[in-house]
Nucleic acid binder design. Structure first.
Lengths: 146, 146
DNA sequence: TATTGTTATACTCTATAACTATA
DNA sequence: TATAGTTATAGAGTATAACAATA
């Protein structure tokens, strides 16, 4: 039961919504012993095999932070490092079969729960919201990845 | 310049938007040597003087996590602990003058930057988006605080 | 020299479990 | 006994600075 509804404005609405969505992500991740950054990592690796520097760019993190992120995922058998055949200094990070399987599970749960957030909206309202959000995202750009 | 725009759906749109808004929050906070949890703490204390347990409930954190959060804010002179006159076990956390001043600065910056996110939307579209977001938020509830 | 990746270090955030003091 | 708050401990996430190996 709602306690009260002060009719939020544009700013507070978007800020609160971001916390709501992030909490959905965090809880879905936690159910599989993951964290939001780990889920982002796995999401990026769905269709890419980047090096550490590229990965850092996708995630908006320092490369030294990505080392730890990949270390922990690798320790769990979710990703792997392979030598880059074109560059003796580089490596390629990719999902393992286990990692891909987990990614699909978590993504499905997140999808279902985010859809549920919009369950009070009509189909037309959902289309409208999707359009408006898309407009914001395409206007900005290099918004942090999936 | 946008690299490409694959026309995101409802789920990916909301997820990416949440990361975009969170990155606005994190950067605004960082400009004042704060973190997002610190900004949330200060936001809550704008109009409340809660105890640690209440604070933990507002933030959705364990009370032991809040101890550290308040410790660090107190060390910087942004908040203070005072004995609860009604309960010998309890304390009341409140913003200091410095904390309130910082809160207003950071809030103003966040507001301006979130408004800027919507700069490509017409006034009508902004109203529409605000309404749709508000509907999602009031439907759920006990969405994590300011 | 520049780039790729890792290491060393330090700090914030978070939780669990155990503890103290008060109710 | 139950509640308010802290402490001890552990681990994830992050950045900066320094480093090794390769380009």
């Amino acid at each position: 039961m709602p306690t009260r509804s002060p009719a939020l404005g544009f700013v507070d609405g978007l800020v609160q919504l971001s916390f709501l969505v992030q909490s959905v992500l965090a809880k879905a991740a936690a159910r599989h012993d993951l964290t939001v950054p780990q889920v982002r990592l796995l999401g990026i690796l769905r269709d890419r095999e980047p090096g550490m520097v590229q990965l850092a760019r996708y995630l908006g993190l320092d490369k030294s932070s990505v080392t730890g992120l990949v270390d922990r995922a690798e320790r769990r058998g979710l990703v792997q490092r392979d030598a880059d055949v074109d560059d003796g200094r580089g490596i390629r990070v990719s999902s393992t079969a286990l990692g891909r399987q987990l990614t699909e599970q978590v993504s499905a749960e997140i999808g279902a729960q985010v859809v549920a957030l919009g369950s009070s909206l009509s189909a037309a309202d959902k289309r409208m919201l999707t359009r408006l959000v898309g407009q914001i995202l395409t206007t900005q750009d290099s918004a942090p990845g999936p």
